[in-house]
Design a protein around this nucleic acid. Sequence first.
DNA 1: CCGAAATTAAACGGATCAGTTTATAAACGA
DNA 2: TCGTTTATAAACTGATCCGTTTAATTTCGG
Lengths: 205, 205
Amino acid sequence: MADGGTQIKRGRKFDQVLDGARKIFMSDGYEGASVDDVAKAAEVSKATLYSYFPDKRLLFMEVARLECCRQTEHALESIDMTQPVRDVLCNMCQHMMKFFLSPFGQRVFRICVAESDRFPELGREFYASGPEHVAASIMSYFDDAIDRGELQIKDRHLAAHQLIELCKADLFPRLVFGIDTEFSDEEINNVVTGAVDMFLARYGV
Amino acid sequence: MADGGTQIKRGRKFDQVLDGARKIFMSDGYEGASVDDVAKAAEVSKATLYSYFPDKRLLFMEVARLECCRQTEHALESIDMTQPVRDVLCNMCQHMMKFFLSPFGQRVFRICVAESDRFPELGREFYASGPEHVAASIMSYFDDAIDRGELQIKDRHLAAHQLIELCKADLFPRLVFGIDTEFSDEEINNVVTGAVDMFLARYGV
DNA sequence: CCGAAATTAAACGGATCAGTTTATAAACGA
DNA sequence: TCGTTTATAAACTGATCCGTTTAATTTCGG
């Protein structure tokens, strides 16, 4: 409201701090990142950093929350719901996989999984701004498609989460556990097609 | 060979060390566990611990490797492949979900995800003794079922990983990110049935 | 029962790191 | 230009923790 920047909170170098923190946390993880490194990357003194954030945890939470929202919104706004069902589903899966398999998506997932039992709020915020948000959008699309008679789904909640999970088949674990570091478009399309084929075999008209 | 115990390596208190390490690592994670705590839990001096394992990492790797093998084997040996396809698939899914949702499965997953980019061998070993091993067993069952004309699958590899991933729908993320801590049998059966329904809609005869 | 191997407790070295403090300097509004 | 707010660098505190060392004790085979 009162601030000219994007943040409600005070500050001239506030965004610098967030940017530096994001950079370091994303490349080093939560435990691996030292506050000194964050301050250095932000080109800000440690005292300044601590004048904005009371401790390392809250700084990290803010970074994670912001990034999850940003990414989820970006993914959602670039899906065109007017295409045929198969195409819409393929698009959704493409976007989800692109995020799952991106270095950034990997990092966020890794950190949230690692820290969310020692740091429950983080897990909850990530889930709300990530999986839950996406699932809600998918379900909303299902509603329309069901109304138009293009899909037959009883348990929309389950169906949405099944679709999400199908996008993780094979490639995602291989990336998370370091078997591979990147995949060809062919591999990705194969999984996307497989997911949509399976989904439509079950819920198509 | 030469040793009376179960271990190839030397030692009288070797197993004590592993047991204590498993207990502490599973309850505190890798970073959260201190070697002193491990030694205490193992009722062993730290010097003894270090006489068996050169450092904390290798100790953890050995614990993780052993536990993954143990759990995977246990799950595999209790599946009866002679039942009708639908029942076998339900059984498989039940077993997988039981593991995914167990406190132990959660712990291992969490730690392996967290540590596997700073500690690549761990991720690889976990993947090999977990997902890959399970997928191989599932594919081997597919081969038989296909021969008997009970399933129609072109890409067996993809199908196996799709089945695995369908078992994680909804409940698994909710547990990983701390939304819920346990689930009713009804919820679990719902996901299992949903997974098998979907799988058979796609690959059933 | 002896002597080698294993085990122990306890302290220590060296390193990292979160968060505070202090004294100084820059930025900026009035 | 003055005074307040904001930022800075650097040293410091207090704590944790890995891994080593030492000197004493226990275990156990032969």
